[in-house]
Structure formats: C-alpha cells, structure tokens
Design a protein around this nucleic acid. Structure first.
Length: 792
DNA sequence: ATCCTCCCCTAC
DNA sequence: TAAGGTAGGGGAGGAT
C-alpha cells in the first residue's frame, strides 16, 4: 500500500464533476428503479433509518415515506443506520446502540415532510444521550420544546472520554497496519524457527510479493459486479451505494486500478478523489477480513520460502534459492506463476511479484509487474533497468528527500549517478548519502531481516484531540497511559526509557483540512529514564503528566500525543537498581488479537474472566520476620544485603477495587485472583469516584489531595488495620516518590501518616508504620549509603 | 570518540 | 463528519 502524500502535491487537472442537479436526477432515477417509489424531495438525503418495534404509522409507511424523501431504509440495525425510529425501545436493545445513534419518534419524519425540511430533532427524541457515563436517559414526556441549534444537536464523546482511545483504534487503518505488521513479523519468525532447512542454493534471487490494492480487492471479492468500476475503501461511505460526499475529508486507504486511471491515489482525501472521479464507489473497511486473508497469504508464502521477511499485511520478501536450478527467466517466472496462482486460489486476490538479485531490484520490479503480473530483472539487466527509474521511487526517498532531489533538478537514477558519494553525504548525511549512492547504481547489500526483537513499544493519537480544560487533558493522558500499560503487559514487557510526544497547534495555524485533524503543529518530545523498568499505568501516567506540565501548554492547543517506551526488559526480569523484584509469574495476557469490541462485549456480559496467577514465592512478610529467606537472599545479593521485598505485584495492580465491598471480598484470595476484564477497560479508573476508600494516590500531584486521601483511608480502617493490598499500594507510592528523588515529600507524607496513626490509637497500625519506615531506610541506604532523616 | 536527547524521515 | 499509527533508522548538536 502506498501512503502517497507525494501524489497529493502533484498538480492534476480537474475534470468537471456533476452538478448537484445532475446528481439529484441520477439518484432519483436509481431510487425509482430500486424502490419503485417516486422521489418527492431530498430532505432525508444521507440519512439511514431503521424502524424498531410497533410504530404508528407502521413500518411500511415509514419506509416508503423515507425513501420518497431521499433517505434510505435499513432492515437491520447496521452500522450505517443514523436514525432509529420507535415509540418505545427496550433497555436491552438500547445498550447495543452506538453513541451517535439518534432515536426518534415517527412524528419527526411526518413533521419534516410537512415542513419540507429537517426540523429540530430534540423534541422528538425518545432517549437523550449522556456522554459522560455513556448511559442513555429517558426523555420525560414533558421535555421542553425549545429548539436547539443544529450544530449543537450532536453531543459526541471527546478525547477525555474513557472510550475514546478504544474507539479511535478500532477505526484506525494505520493502527491496524502497524498491529498486523508486528503480528506477521512474529508469525514469520515462528515459521522460520520451526523450519529444518536448506536455505542454500547456488543462485540467489529475491522475490517481492505484493497483493494488488489489497483493501479494495478484498472488498470486491464479494462484489464482483463492481470489479470494472472505480472503487476505493475508506470511511464516510453509505454502503457503497452513495459515496457522494463531496466535502468529505476522510482518507481513502486503497483504490483499484480503474480509479487510479482517474488520478485517484491511495491516501487521497475523498473530496479530492470525487472531483477527479465523480463515479467513484467507496466501500467500508473490513478489518477482520484483511487480517484473515493476510494470514492465508503468508501461509502460501511459507510454502515457497527458504527465507522470508514480512513487510506488511499484503507484502513480503522471499528467498527461494533452494528451488532454483538456475537463475534463468523461465525458472523464476515458473515459480512466480505458481505462487501467484496459489494466492489467487486461496486468498481470491491478485498478487504481483517483482524479482531480482537483491531487495532493491525486486522491490522496483514489482512496480513494473503491477497489476496482477510479474517482472524479473536479472543481474545483467540491472544497469539498463535502473537508469530510467525515478529517484522518487527509490526506497527511503519519501516526501522530504524527494523534494530535495526536485530542487536539485534530479529526476532519474542516471542523473543521481553523476554525484559523488561525498556530495551526497554532505546533503543527506553519512549513511543516507551512501545508501543513495548505491541505490542509483542498483546496489543493495541488505539481507532479509527475519528475527523479531522489539526495540520500542508505544501508542499515539493525533486525531480528534480538542480539549479545553486541564482536567480533560489529564483524563486523555490517563487513558493513553492505560493503553500503553496494557500493550506492555500483553507483550510481557516493561520499559525504562519513556518518551512523551506532543503535538501542539502552531500559533497561527489555520483550521486543519481534515475534520478533527491535528493541522499544522509543533512537535515536542521529552524523555525520561526510570530507575527501574516500568509497566504500570499509574507510574506511566504520573510521569507523563509531570513532563507534560513542564511544557506549559494551553489545553486547547493540544492536538495529539504519544507515549513510547524504549530500553525494554522482559516483565519477568524487570529488576531495578533497588533490587525490587517483580515476581510476575503471570499468564500472558494477550489482547493483541482481541478486538476492543470483543473486550467490551465481555465486559458487558460480565461472564468471561481472565485469570492471573501471581507468583506464590512473593514473600508476604518483611525479611526480618523470615530469617531463612533472608539468608537465601544474602547469598544471592552481591552486596550481602537483603533485597527489598517485592513492592509491586499484579495482585495489587489488577484487583477490582471499584467498591469497598469488593475489597473486602477479594482481600482473602491473595495468590490467585480473578481479573475481571472490566479492570482493564476504561471505567476502572475514573478519577471522580469519591466513594472509593482506598489510597489511590498515583497521578495526584496536589499535596492536600494526597493528604485527604491518606486520612480518609486511615479513618476508614482505623479499627481493623490496613489491608495488605493497601499497604503495598502505599509502599509503591513512596518508592515512586523516592525514585523521583522527591525526598521532601517522602518525609512530609511519612510524618503526616505517622501523625494520623498516632491519633487513632489503634494496635493494628503501628506495625505498618515500622514496615514502611524500614522500607524507606533500606532504599535510602541502597541509593545513598545512609539513612534518611524521617523524623523532624 | 561516544553517548544522549530531541527531533525528522520513511514504510505500510 | 472521522478515526493523521507505529517501529525503526538516522542526523544535529550538546554533554561527557
């Protein structure tokens, strides 16, 4: 797939497109054909209605009315439905609706027709959305009939909503592309590991296999009637029948070769594509299918590959040396034919193959092979082949380097060849310069990379961010921190180096061309190295907020953010300089294959539970109370000091702690806990739940807030003493403070806690205080070689 | 010299 | 409406 912002820049002539009148006539004709109804007006254009239950007038009348006035009727409650018509909707069904669904009474349709245009929906609504808690509340019959401005009508979730992150990723093609790439790298690594093997052969030919306009091809599998029409895939569709959204800023992920003849390109905005090609049909994404076919594609490739490098869901490099008796065109084309036939049979999608003595040539040959073809460039042909290649088609020449070449007046590889290596290095840097020097001569020494070791992991969202208050920005960062934490856990990783990326609206940036896009921004990034590998949501969030606040940006200027980790460590081996051990003998939580929607469903059903087993070797008492264990530790510890007892366990992090009663219930089962999916979903950490009685301190910076939470906690448990789980939370909190060298606060909060505990005069609390003090002193000795002055 | 931080660039 | 992600390579310039 080609994300060509390049092509956006090119000037293309604009064919005259249909006027609205022409379009209206055409649509009228089509509609009359389809529904055998006369089009009387177009007031419901773009709206899709679904009728639920008994209505007055009945369903058939509503259907006809809607169609006669330019709308569409959907028999099922599908994705494209914009309006649900009913007089009464049962709660069960209500829960299945998406936030944006409008539920109205049939009278609205009648009144619209009577008035000859859309009238305000609000008085006709059956339910009112409440974006805060995602619940719908019944509109009382006495609801006021004050008209509301059209724009105000839709209250959407914003980026501070706990569902925003999941919803965004669910719809992001780029996210899926990245996700699958990773999966497929793992998939190929696995395949090669199990392969007993004869990679070697006398002849070396590399194949570059690429499925033709993948997303569209998948869409057309079941729509053969559209195969010779211009077709693209993107959001903003009406099931392919009416893609006439002339002002849509949605991106087309993929377009077929018919559409390309009109000048339509991958990555182009729909509005521009429609100008070039008014008849363009836009079909919706089908992410599940892509993933499935991608898997099949790779299984076919495995059949032929001696070696394989995954490039993306529709593209890979192959080495087929052992299948070659010579490197003649006949031999290579034979194999290519077979591979392409297999792909066609199994995936029902056409593939093209480029072949050559190295990766560069194979890749460039694919361009010649497409669509649905193959092209092999032999060693002998390289020189001739490369000379007319456009430099912009070379790998690692994108927008920036391309423009650079353009200003230099360089178009083809033979022109590029005139430059010396040092000239190139002066312009592009040492490595890039050398690379281009070689590429324009057809030289490429890269070998297939098929090992898969991650060097970084992260999450980033640069769309839909319009937040006008500090608290909303913080919620967004909490949700993003949670996402990153989940990703770390699901790949069993923790990381030491955190990087925060922020997009900030430029001072005089215009309204972005893309709806809810980031527009023209300054990119800022800050990194922080933790003293130990980290994976916990709260720790990430706290640090992120600290760094973000240091930037002093106005909330309304935030346009996007990313949180990334480098210096990754297996979560089981996560070991800090304090010898804090994270005994996480956990089952791998793998959500990478589970779509967010599935998670939400599980959450709703409340039936499925994922089990996490925390290690049984976590010492439950401080080392002093357990001499035998202490000895064992002394043997292992280089300095002869006992390591700290583990402060962080999954038990602590993931216990459902929504309500106080939950805490009591669960505090007994310490070794094996049931992790309700709910905990991983967004609701669990709402900051405003003041009914929580547990010391949730992470993420709060305000001193009085921390103190009041501590007081609340101590007060609540003053008779029965602190729960183990809460003790650990406090230990963690203090060690985080300590790690961030906030010794003043450590001292302050410790003293405050001490005072609280002295005040309540309970027998159960002082031992906790001693434990905490011991912890802190041990950490201090380990870090600074001396004790901490805790008592003023 | 070599490392680190903050960028930018590229690919799909 | 719309969903502009993400991992990795690399460079400039300052700190060590």
């Amino acid at each position: 797939m080609n994300q060509s912002s390049k092509s956006d820049k090119r000037k293309e002539k604009e064919p005259a497109y249909e006027s609205y009148d022409q379009y209206f006539q055409e649509k009228k004709r089509k509609l009359e054909q389809q529904n055998s109804c006369t089009l009387k007006s177009n007031i419901f254009y773009g709206l899709v209605f679904h009728v639920n239950g008994y209505t007055n007038p009945p369903l058939t009348t509503i259907r006809d009315l809607v169609c006669e006035h330019g709308g569409r009727y959907a028999q099922y409650l599908s994705r494209e439905v914009t309006h649900i018509v009913c007089t009464n909707l049962p709660m069960a069904k209500l829960k299945l609706l998406k936030q944006s669904d409008v539920i109205i009474k049939p009278e609205w349709i009648l009144d619209c027709i009577k008035k000859g245009g859309l009238v305000d929906e609000k008085p006709y609504r059956v339910y009112e959305h409440n974006s805060l808690n995602n619940q719908k509340t019944l509109v009382l019959p006495t609801a006021s009939r004050t008209p509301v401005a059209h724009a105000e009508r839709e209250s959407r979730i914003d980026a501070s909503d706990p569902n925003f992150v999941a919803q965004f990723y669910q719809n992001s093609r780029l996210h899926f592309l990245s996700l699958w790439k990773n999966e497929l790298k793992e998939f190929t690594a696995e395949f090669l590991k199990n392969k007993k093997d004869n990679i070697h052969g006398a002849y070396k030919v590399i194949l570059h296999v690429d499925m033709d306009s993948f997303f569209v091809s998948v869409a057309l599998k079941d729509r053969q009637n559209l195969i010779d029409k211009p077709v693209a895939v993107g959001h903003s569709t009406r099931d392919g029948k009416e893609s006439n959204k002339l002002d849509s800023s949605s991106d087309l992920a993929s377009c077929n070769y018919v559409a390309r003849q009109f000048g339509v390109r991958n990555g182009m905005m729909l509005q521009k594509a429609l100008k070039l090609c008014p008849g363009l049909i836009v079909l919706p994404y089908e992410f599940e299918k892509y993933r499935e076919i991608s898997r099949k594609f790779y299984t076919v490739l495995f059949k032929y590959a001696d070696n394989i490098q995954a490039v993306s869901c529709d593209e890979a490099f192959l080495e087929i040396n052992s299948k070659l008796n010579d490197d003649s065109k006949e031999t290579v084309y034979d194999i290519c034919e077979n591979i392409r036939k297999d792909i066609r049979d199994i995936c029902e999608v056409n593939a093209s193959i480029g072949a050559g003595p190295n990766m560069l040539i194979a890749r460039l040959a694919t361009k010649k092979a497409k669509p649905n073809g193959q092209h092999y460039v032999t060693k002998e042909e390289i020189k001739d082949f490369i000379k007319d290649i456009n430099v912009k088609d070379l790998p690692s020449v994108g927008y920036a380097h391309g423009s650079q070449f353009e200003t230099m007046g360089i178009e083809t590889c033979s022109q590029l060849e005139q430059l010396t290596i040092s000239e190139l290095q002066k312009i592009f840097g040492i490595k890039q310069g050398e690379l281009f020097y070689n590429y324009c001569r057809g030289i490429d020494s890269r070998e297939l990379i098929n090992t898969h070791e991650r060097k970084s992991i992260g999450a980033e969202i640069n769309w839909g961010i319009r937040l006008n208050e500090k608290s909303k920005v913080e919620s967004f960062f909490r949700n993003l921190s949670k996402e990153v934490s989940e990703r770390l856990i699901s790949s069993s990783l923790s990381g030491k180096l955190l990087t925060l990326k922020v997009k900030c609206r430029k001072r005089d940036a215009e309204q972005p061309r893309k709806h809810m896009g980031h527009g023209w921004c300054d990119d800022i990034s800050k990194s922080h190295e933790f003293s130990r590998p980290v994976f916990e949501e709260n720790v990430i969030f706290t640090q992120v907020i600290k760094m973000y606040n240091g930037l002093h940006l106005a909330p309304e200027d935030l346009r996007g953010a990313g949180i990334h980790f480098q210096k990754l460590v297996d979560i089981k081996n996560a070991k800090g300089k304090n010898h804090m051990r994270f005994c996480l003998d956990q089952k791998k939580l793998d959500f990478s294959n589970m779509k967010k929607r599935e998670i939400n469903n599980i959450k709703k059903n409340n039936k499925n539970e994922v089990e996490i087993i925390s290690s049984s070797d976590i010492p439950k008492h401080s080392p002093e109370k357990n001499p035998s264990k202490q000895k064992a530790f002394q043997k292992l510890s280089p300095k002869g000091k006992p390591p700290f007892k583990p402060l962080i366990t999954l038990t602590q992090k993931f216990k459902p702690r929504k309500l106080f009663s939950d805490v009591i219930e669960l505090s007994d089962s310490d070794d094996t806990i049931n992790l309700n999916i709910d905990i991983l979903s967004s609701q669990s950490h709402t900051q405003t739940q003041n009914y929580l009685i547990y010391p949730d301190l992470d993420g709060f910076v305000d001193e009085s807030e921390i103190k009041s939470r501590l007081k609340q906690w101590v007060d609540y448990f003053k008779d029965e003493g602190p729960l183990d789980i809460d003790k650990r939370t406090i230990f963690t909190y203090f060690s985080e403070l300590f790690d961030s060298k906030n010794l003043d606060l450590v001292r302050k909060y410790f003293c405050y806690l001490k005072r609280l505990i002295n005040e309540i005069e309970s027998e159960k609390w002082p031992s906790f205080l001693t434990e905490l003090e011991n912890q802190l002193q041990l950490m201090s000795i380990n870090n600074y070689g001396s004790k901490l002055l805790l008592n003023p």
